[in-house]
Design a protein around this nucleic acid. Structure first.
Lengths: 188, 188
DNA sequence: CCTACCGATCGGTAGG
DNA sequence: CCTACCGATCGGTAGG
């Protein structure tokens, strides 16, 4: 693994623990045994580091959603979306947490780019729910609000997920998923 | 309204927009037409300001939950809890947002105090859901996870709630509430 | 509530 | 990747 990647991992952990603005370049340098000024051979600015981490988090979510077979029926599709969301949470917890907590500190143009990606992710969920309504397996009066609801329940999970969480996690996720299905009035 | 209160309101808005660590005492002073040093006649430290705002947010949620009639049946109780949550979100959006985003920057002892209050709030929801299971109006295999699910869906809402939101908000909240009820398999 | 000031630290650059 | 350094700004105090 190259040095740049090592620094990004250390930065992700640091930002997760202390937040972007409470983390200094010198703090970060200490974690990778460098002097603060040497970080600038790998990155143009502190903001660039934030961007790379946030971007990595967002891409993990998007790739997960985009890898799902579009031919699936609505129920399976939504279940894959939910499982994928938790997979990203599990495998990329640090980047994902920084993504949720710190993306708002990006400069305006990069912030706009993140909003675009977030909207694309949301569209996958809305499409699956709409498909379920069309297939008459979901029953909901308002697909937009239902989508908001499902994504809210998922997005907050970074608050209670822990690195190396309990073995019980797979069952928890299954049950969480079934609660979402029930909220959409799932009928086989 | 006394000066101290005015400063707290300005600080809440400032922290909401820029985050606690990216807001300086001089930024805050400008918003209330003072010099930075003069803020220290009202507050001992910057941290004290954060504590007051976060504390106000948390108390609003707790008071809402604790004002609910314990004699209510489970469905009505949970609906009051949900409505109360959104009332706080509406009336105290700024303090609530700072509460969610910035409470982790409090010193350890105050952080522990906030966790206590959050646990007390959560207990109200768990109790209502458990009561519903006992009354056979809710059906859920795992009250703990169901509580986590409901609170996740509610807690994330600060992300999409806006000050002076759309007139449609009451209907949105009603529908959001019905999604939660369905997730708990509500049967009258 | 102000002016004046403190030491510490910030992100970042120059030059090697 | 380092040393040495920059101007700017930080939270906070003294003294009035």
């Amino acid at each position: 693994m190259d040095r740049r990647e090592e620094i990004l991992i250390a930065a992700s952990e640091l930002f997760r623990e202390n937040g972007y603005h409470a983390s200094s370049m010198r703090d970060l340098a200490k974690r990778v045994d460098m002097k603060g000024s040497s970080l600038y051979t790998h990155f143009k600015a502190k903001e660039e580091i934030l961007w790379e981490i946030v971007s990595k988090g967002a891409d993990a979510f998007l790739r997960s959603a985009e890898s799902i077979d579009q031919a699936l029926n609505a129920k399976d599709k939504l279940e894959c979306l939910i499982q994928g969301h938790f997979d990203v949470m599990t495998n990329e917890l640090t980047n994902a947490t920084v993504f949720f907590n710190e993306w708002r500190f990006l400069p305006d143009d990069l912030k706009a780019e993140m909003i675009k990606r977030r909207d694309r992710y949301e569209a996958h969920f809305r499409q699956a729910i709409q498909q379920g309504v069309d297939e008459s397996v979901f029953k909901t009066d308002d697909v937009k609000v239902a989508t908001l609801f499902v994504l809210s329940a998922l997005n907050w999970s970074y608050q209670w997920m822990k690195q190396d969480g309990p073995k019980a996690l797979p069952e928890l996720i299954d049950y969480y998923s079934s609660l979402i299905m029930q909220s959409l009035n799932y009928k086989a």
